[in-house]
Amino acid sequence: MSSDIPSTRRQTLFLIAGILLIATSLRVTFTGAAPLLDSIRADYGLSTAWTGMLTTLPLLAFGLFSPLAAGIARRFGMERSLFAALLLICAGIAVRSLPSATFLFVGTTIIGCGIAMGNVLLPGLIKRDFAGHVARMIGAYSLTMGGAAALGSALVVPIAMSGAGWHGALLALMAFPLIGLLVWLPQLRRHTPGTMTTSGSLHNRGIWRSALAWQVTLFLGINSLVYYVVIGWLPSILISQGYSEAQAGSLHGLLQLATAVPGLLIPIVLHKLKDQRGIAIVVAIMCAISAVGYWLLPQQAVVWTLIFGFGSGATMILGLTFIGLRAGSAHQAAALSGMAQSVGYLLAACGPPLMGKIHDASGDWHIPLIAVAVISLMMALFGGLAGRDREIAG
């Protein structure tokens, strides 16, 4: 009997390590390409619009593929489905690195499909295996995801300049999902068969009719919209306000680091709260304040970057935590995750080009920044509703 205890502990540690390593692949393989976009555009002679598609395509893939992930997991099990997600990410990285603009866009889309599966299924897996520690686990994997994204953004340019070129730098990002695959292999032995019962289908259909599910969805979805607008346009906003490209790039990296910090703090705070309404409203308002700050006091951009990074990182953690807390089962959590991330990433895909068009029409970033502030206040409203201590019926 005593020999089973260390074995069980070891299995739990391997599971946690696997979850965190999967998390490292869910942002860096996407955002890691951003510092290389100018080189890619120059090499292939792409227009600004086509280069922007390298950001938009994964978000569209997230939105369109996310609703399918829960059904795939019910049929093949979460362990195998997450393994398949990592394989898709690896395949996409390999295709994206081939010397052809067509392969660049095809590979980027494949990566988006793999990330979509991981994004949807990890909250469900955490709900199933760590039901009593949802906030802590979500915080840990959010911290890992943000840290890996910052690391990837810092490394790709030196790798490219070392002689590997941007093709080699993008290929080097495969290290993250490959390590995840190796550590995840033991989980395939404890495969839990997916159910094909009608209950899973009812979760998928019923979740779209739940007011609480829509409140969680819009809280997380607006967070995605606001985050990708700012992460996409912040360098341009800062350069238009007199910052150099180097300074704008440094603040862009600082933003990604700041989004990781709430992973350390939010889980600790959540344990002391009866519900999450207050904290959801506060961190959403932080995003609104920072947007206004970029407009009115651009010389304090470091402060606004830290505030926005913390606020958007915290809202993402809360939104993912709501998926686990508001759902009554792992399958319902996966279905809610698919709904929230589908709607959220479709919103996010529309945000950057829409704000870019508003900028082009108005000639400055004032209106887009005001729009981000107003949308963030809407996020605070839905956060107050989603943060109530209750579960989705059914």
Rank of each mutant, 00 (worst) to 15 (best):
F103C: 13
Q299M: 08
I40D: 03
F76K: 03
G313Q: 03
G163V: 09
L13C: 09
A164S: 11
L318D: 01
S224A: 15
A291H: 05
D129T: 11
A140I: 06
S290L: 09
I231W: 09
G114A: 04
F308P: 00
L346S: 05
G319N: 00
V216M: 13
P262L: 02
T195I: 10
L104I: 07
M137I: 14
G92L: 00
L143R: 04
L171Q: 01
T259P: 10
P58E: 12
G147T: 09
L178I: 15
L385D: 03
L296S: 12
G114N: 08
A101S: 14
I93S: 02
R209F: 11
M117E: 02
L37C: 02
Y227S: 10
A330T: 04
I72D: 07
D43C: 08
L385S: 09
G319H: 00
M1L: 12
G328D: 07
V230Y: 03
L151Q: 05
D364A: 13
V269I: 15
S362E: 09
G107I: 03
P158M: 10
N223W: 04
L57S: 05
Q215K: 11
L336V: 06
L122G: 05
A85D: 11
G221Y: 06
G63W: 07
L306H: 01
L60E: 06
G114Q: 07
F382T: 14
I281Q: 12
C90G: 10
Q187V: 09
I5T: 13
A340R: 10
G18Q: 04
Q187E: 04
A291F: 10
P6H: 12
Y141C: 04
S376R: 03
L270F: 09
I179D: 08
A23D: 01
P123Y: 11
R277T: 15
E245V: 15
L170D: 00
F308G: 00
H133K: 15
P177W: 05
L270N: 14
T192V: 14
I72C: 13
F14L: 15
G338D: 00
Q187T: 09
M286K: 04
H203R: 09
S250Y: 13
F322C: 05
A150H: 07
I115N: 04
R27L: 05
A334F: 11
V283M: 06
V292S: 08
Q276Y: 13
I231G: 09
A84C: 11
I266N: 06
L173S: 08
Q256F: 11
G114E: 02
L297P: 00
A314F: 01
F322D: 05
L87T: 08
A327G: 06
L318C: 01
S244L: 06
L178T: 01
H366I: 07
W50C: 01
G77P: 03
A301Q: 10
I115D: 05
G92E: 11
V226T: 14
A371Y: 07
V303W: 12
G124K: 07
A164G: 06
I237S: 01
L68N: 04
T192C: 04
H133G: 12
R128C: 06
L381N: 10
A284C: 03
V269P: 04
Q215F: 12
